[in-house]
Design a protein around this nucleic acid. Sequence first.
DNA 1: GTATATGCAAAGGGTTTGCACGGTT
DNA 2: AACCGTGCAAACCCTTTGCATATAC
Lengths: 148, 148
Amino acid sequence: MIVDWDRRLREHGFRITPQRQLVLEAVERLRHGTPEEILVEVQRTASGVNLSTVYRTLEVLEDVGLVTHAHIGHGAPTYHAVDEHMHIHLVCDRCSKVMSVPAETAAEFVGGLKAEHGFVTDISHVSIHGWCVACIEASRSDLDESAQ
Amino acid sequence: MIVDWDRRLREHGFRITPQRQLVLEAVERLRHGTPEEILVEVQRTASGVNLSTVYRTLEVLEDVGLVTHAHIGHGAPTYHAVDEHMHIHLVCDRCSKVMSVPAETAAEFVGGLKAEHGFVTDISHVSIHGWCVACIEASRSDLDESAQ
DNA sequence: GTATATGCAAAGGGTTTGCACGGTT
DNA sequence: AACCGTGCAAACCCTTTGCATATAC
């Protein structure tokens, strides 16, 4: 469990509730989870918890900096606990597989955005779309029209 | 209008219809548009066109490489015509403003992903989240806890 | 003429909201 | 005791789908 998770909530004027603890624990256990998946995980120990509570709780936890989310694919967002290593999601638009690479991979890019545009990137929120190695090779037999 | 737009459709086995032409024109006119916004634009000249046709048409146009979309914010995706300069969206998570920067800004980053992970990035599909200059400065008076 | 595209309406995910009740402070 | 948080159900937005009709080829 993240140290001081309860203090962080209290400091921002939020209360400590079983649901908030359960949701945070669930997010940590699943390393990536949609609200729905988090609900299922929470319900393994507390079947009464409601989906809308999960949504509201995730919002609160994000507010106080205990979790973040990223938009992978077109569907529901994925939540993480913040103490995990910062990472970027590479989403394959062909096979939908997701791989994680360390946030530092983007250090120079992020530095450039800051220097040239004053834009401070929230790198863990980013999902990069494209094609993974496997799909690139699989499509070699087909047409030959992908570069960059 | 994109040159050979009709040929590109035909080559992929699609038919040329007024709706497809209208949607493509609308996407070009609005430089960024959600399906809903595109519908409104199309309906300025053809009020009978239906939302589901816009969705289906955008999918076809994307298939043949005439448009792309990116996920800005949490809501509907934004579509572009492909002949515009490739660009990346910087989305401010505080004021929701979106700025575009040339795709080349990410050239090194994208090159690294290719070299290290074999991942071929679709850069125009990417949205980078963070805080814009204005919001960074506006929050200077508040707490001081953002870096990277 | 035949297969594809369209319009319409209904269904489907994912998310938010109003309200009364229950729990934390 | 006061207020915040929760469960429940309904509403909401965005998108997809089934089907009959219309249209491009």
